[in-house]
Design a protein around this nucleic acid. Sequence first.
RNA 1: GUGCCCAUAGUGUAGCGGUUAACACUAGAGUUUGUGGAACUCUCAUCACGGGUUCGAAUCCCGUUGGGCACC
Length: 373
Amino acid sequence: MFQFEIEKHSKKSLARKGIIKMSHGEVKTPAFLPCATFGTVKGISFEELKVIGFEMILANTYHLYLRPGDGKIKKMGGLNQFIGWQKPILTDSGGYQIFSLGKNYTDYQKVKNKKKSLAEIDSEGVTFKSHLDGGKHFFSPEKIIDIQKNLGSDIMMVLDECTEYPASYQRAEQSIKITHLWAKKSIDYWQRFKNPKQALFGIVQGSVYRDLRNQSVDYISSLPFDGLAVGGVSVGEGKIKMRKVIRWMGPKLPIEKPHYLMGVGEPEDIIEAIKWGFDLFDSVLPTRLGRHGTCWTTNNWQNFSKINLKSSRYQTDKRTIQKNCQCFSCQKGYSRAYLGHLFKNKEMLGLRLASLHNLWIIRDLLRRIRKSI
RNA sequence: GUGCCCAUAGUGUAGCGGUUAACACUAGAGUUUGUGGAACUCUCAUCACGGGUUCGAAUCCCGUUGGGCACC
């Protein structure tokens, strides 16, 4: 089951608020999905996520396939049962891992001048060398769908190639060809072996080249996906180029389908993207920044800044992270000084409190934006 | 009291006559966007003090101070 209803369009921009109805429940959009790559949002319980108000999370096909294995998860009754989260789940395909493992590869090459890749791509799919044990695994677009069927996620993502940055025009062009070929194979396979409980999203690539992005969005939109994602952003291209891609793509996405901007988590970027019609976001940023002692603060919910709790300037600062914040940390009154102390000693509580704060800020931001549409 | 050894960044060490004194941890300032609690970048030393030898001294010599060990 998958239905997307738009409740209201903004008069000032392309922003809209809506609701996605899926097998495991409803998600009000625009929405942010915390990353539970391994089936857990690092350090945060699902109870806490529910209290904060998240309605959907993201998990990763590649990682869960390697460990514990999608077969075992299926035996445990599916991913929701296995991890104890009854609300909707979106599973990322593993396309990003082609990119991130490939990036390690180029760095490695620079240093060692050796050819040794963890991911090799051809038209059939991608051969991964497991980062865990070195074992070889072949993923085709079809196999990625099978794995996600075993996981039982509400939204599945197609296998794509997330183009690294910087990429030459030729490289980006070659990259969308593979992505388009895999998209076609994915949707054909899905239509033959469909599971009505799940939905499938396509992914647009094209790096920072407008005509490639246009080609890609036209092609991916022509296929009968349940939703459209824009990928290949927030990979190092910088805010200015990323915003260009957002502005180019927003107006071209089919209006009746959900629009998902992959990997974007900076509050200002989310605000901007919503104005251009995006409905879904995910990012590791709230928890990754939190784990490193960085927290978002804001006065007006338009501009955001980051404070580094580890900084010596907060050593005797009695203030909470942010005034008037209702998160677990601020509401409880934990001082910046104490949080900084926790971080310097690598205490788990610090990682948790900062992560909870950042998650709260993002959730609150989305709630406020939705209200204003 | 006598003999021997030691003194280099906050800590632990490298450097054995030759350009900007190296490394690890700590500390300080950053980077982090479809997750490695990861990684990376940058910053921090008048080489215990005073003299001498030398074109050139952390390095060799003398003295002072402060440690350590052995002997009386």
